[in-house]
Design a protein around this nucleic acid. Sequence first.
DNA 1: ATGGTAGGTACCCTA
Length: 268
Amino acid sequence: MRILTWNINSVRLRMPLLKKIARKHAPDIICLQETKTPDEFFPLKEIAGLGYEHAHIHGMKSYNGVAILSRAPFATKEIHRRVGKEDCRHIAAQIQSKKFKKPVELHCLYVPAGGDVPDPKQNDKFDHKLKFVDEMARWFRENRAADAPLIALGDFNIAPLENDVWSHKQLLDVVSHTPIEVEKLGKMYGSLGWQDAVRHFVPENEKCYTWWSYRNRDWKKSNRGRRLDHIWLTKPLMPHLKAHKIDAGARDGKQPSDHVPVMVDIDL
DNA sequence: ATGGTAGGTACCCTA
């Protein structure tokens, strides 16, 4: 089973690119963040035409929005409200598995970006981000079990490791790589003993990015990337993790998203 | 140190 996650930055604008990516990688499940559309305008029919007839979508006007698209039906679907807001940042669905007797639960997350100023007292958006990650850590610890087959993925908007950013030193004060965010993401990581599926394959001393800012004339030449998008698995899934891929080529071409698709293959 | 680009929406917000 191939599971792909991508911050698409507007699903309606990016449909031609989504079609290309679906054909190229043929994932069984596609998780999207920043769909930026209310559910009534989500292009469900076009996506069903690509083979994804089952959808769990949760969107709003202009901002945020998450979706899980699948070839096979879901056992259950959930929508989670976070930090008391109607924000469309967390949905979950259970997928059927032959390997595991119970369904595998997949959480699609869009963590707040957090604005520019890395101080929760001065910047409400950063405060929201920290509270969001705190709440996720607590929620997983209190509501889910480390020995259950779970997947948490999406745009976490945090690059935790030194080689998840182009310059560790230069980004220590930049929202996405500040020590406080990294510490909080670490607590969420510890909540269920999560495993980083991409770093399972890519050594920690190797640079690894999933996002390049639009504010660079040549993203490839400057290569000032960050690894903001993640796929985490609980330990029972790790023996079944077979491969990963980051499609950096998706950053090229006309009207790309600033994030690129990240995927894993798991025997389920 | 600054400003650079993109998307959605409504004349500015978020990223």
